[in-house]
């Protein structure tokens, strides 16, 4: 009996995941990236334990605030871990296709450039899911079970922020690492370029916001744009309120630029001018 075959972009995603997991450094970093949720869970357990709370001198309402602070810290750590993992694994799944002319072999199949990008981005996002929103939501579910009865009702937005924020962040990271890898082709150079882009954008955003007294300029930094979107739900006061629409626009611009770079660089046949 003939078995069903996967759509080509899912085949690309499956091989991308396998390729990233084949790297020893990536696997080590991946395991390390599971530490923050474990630590967060331990802290939440402490917060839910009445005798321990009493020993630590934390009162009822303060435990809820502390839990929110745990989720804020967890979000930041997971976002950082996702960045490290994307930088380590991303170039591995694009550069080899481009360096030795492998791309025409792929694109001569029933696979277009969009399908190729979808597959690669999907692979990165699927692999980052367990260390970002997957474990984040798991921690939230366990916190809902551990903390007071009404806690989860009052903090549904936290779950939404974990899910939506991490999906957006991992999508941006995946596109950025694919675009830089397609642009420079060399793996180490792509990692450096990705780090450089994020650092430069963050610095430029922070400096220009201070100089020009305009908070909107901080959104030039991709992590700040995502932070601006999840800040209200996570109760963060670091990011000014009301930047949501501008943050969406900034994220959409980054995605559009990355896609434009990918479409320009991923060609089955190069044209010599």
């Amino acid at each position: 009996m003939r078995r069903r075959s996967l759509p080509p972009s899912l085949v690309v995603a499956r091989y991308a995941v396998a390729r990233m997991l084949a790297g020893r450094r990536f696997r080590q970093a991946y395991i390390l990236a599971l530490a923050p949720p474990t630590v967060a869970l331990a802290i939440l357990y402490v917060l839910s334990s009445a005798p321990l709370i009493e020993q630590l001198g934390i009162r009822g309402p303060a435990a809820g605030d502390a839990a929110l602070a745990v989720f804020r810290a967890l979000f930041r750590w997971q976002a950082f871990a996702a960045f490290v993992l994307a930088a380590l694994g991303g170039p591995e799944i694009v550069s080899p296709d481009l360096v030795d002319g492998g791309l025409p072999l792929l694109l001569a199949r029933p696979l277009g450039r969009w399908g190729y990008v979808r597959g690669k981005v999907g692979g990165v996002m699927a692999l980052l899911a367990p260390v970002t929103w997957g474990s984040g939501l798991l921690v939230w579910l366990l916190a809902a079970g551990l903390l007071s009865d009404g806690w989860w009702r009052g903090h549904l937005a936290v779950a939404g922020a974990i899910l939506g924020g991490h999906i957006l962040w991992t999508a941006e990271l995946a596109l950025l690492v694919l675009a830089t890898s397609a642009w420079v082709r060399n793996r180490s150079a792509a990692q450096g370029l990705m780090l450089g882009i994020l650092m430069v954008l963050t610095s430029v955003g922070a400096i220009s916001a201070q100089v020009l007294h305009n908070e909107l300029l901080t959104l030039v930094s991709p992590p700040m744009a995502v932070a601006a979107l999840v800040a209200p739900a996570l109760g963060s006061t670091r990011v000014p309120a009301g930047l949501g629409p501008a943050a969406c626009l900034a994220s959409a611009t980054l995605v559009a630029i990355c896609l434009a770079v990918l479409m320009a660089r991923l060609r089955a046949a190069e044209v010599v001018r």
Binding site: P96, D97, G101, G102, L106, P110
Partner: peptide
């Protein structure tokens, strides 16, 4: 035209899967 880091059989298998 090849993809470095893949064995011959893995590369050809992947391309066969892409063909359906």
């Amino acid at each position: 035209a090849f993809i470095a880091g893949m064995t011959g059989v893995r590369l050809v298998r992947m391309l066969a899967e892409l063909s359906g």
